[in-house]
Structures are given as structure tokens and as C-alpha cells.
Amino acid sequence: MAQDRPTAAELLAAIADFLREEATPALDRTEPRLGFQMRVAVNSLAILEREVRLGPAADAREHERLVRLLGRDAPLDELNRELARQLRSGERDETDAALMAHLEATIADKIAIANPKWR
């Protein structure tokens, strides 16, 4: 059964906003060390908010690409294990254009969640 609103992403965003705008400045005045830790926490909440919003579609795209690349279907983790094995053994390398396109797309989706400002 679906939960009522706020959605998970909306609730996470509300918590992060509150901690960033109200709790952090108060902590900075009284306990600077905790103020720093709070920034880390707020940043992590923002990652979760993006993950809840963008993660499922990103995982689905990654899975679809891996099925095409490896020519078989299996759970996402198993396909990544097979890809990692092929890369370590040298069966595939950076000269494989389909591989590189898959990795580029996967990492673009991952960084959009973990740290969209990274460049």
C-alpha cells in the first residue's frame, strides 16, 4: 500500500533543509565539531533524497545495458560480477566501445546521485 505524502524523497528533502538551515547554524555557534559532522549528515541526506528519486530508473537502465553487453540475463549484482571478472582477466578492455559506453552511462547515473557537482 502506498504511503501518504510526503514521499520518501520529499520527507528526506524536508529533513535536510531543516538541519541545514536551522540546526547547523545553531551547532556552529555552540559545538563547531558537531557543526562539521552535521554538514556531513546533511550531505548524506541529500544523496539519499536523490537516490530515492533517481535510483530505481538508473538501476533499471544499468541492468538493461548489462544484459545487452553480456548477452544473458541475471540479477544486476551477478552481471556486474561477471563484468568485473572479464575486466580483471583482460577478456574485455578499454578498446571495447560498447563496454566504455556502458561504463560512461553507469557512472554518469551514479555521480548524479552521489555528487552532481563533481566535474
Binding site: Q37, S44, M100, E104, K110, I111, A114, N115
Partner: peptide
């Protein structure tokens, strides 16, 4: 928590490596 959160920075180096 600080150590836990650093795990999510690994992808920054994946971007750089590509």
C-alpha cells in the same frame, strides 16, 4: 557516520578514471 559517508565518494574517482 563520517567514515560511512566517504564510501559514496568512490564514484568521484570512477568519473576521473574514465
Amino acid at each position: 557516520m563520517e567514515h560511512a559517508s566517504i564510501g559514496r565518494r568512490a564514484v568521484e574517482t570512477e568519473v576521473d578514471l574514465l
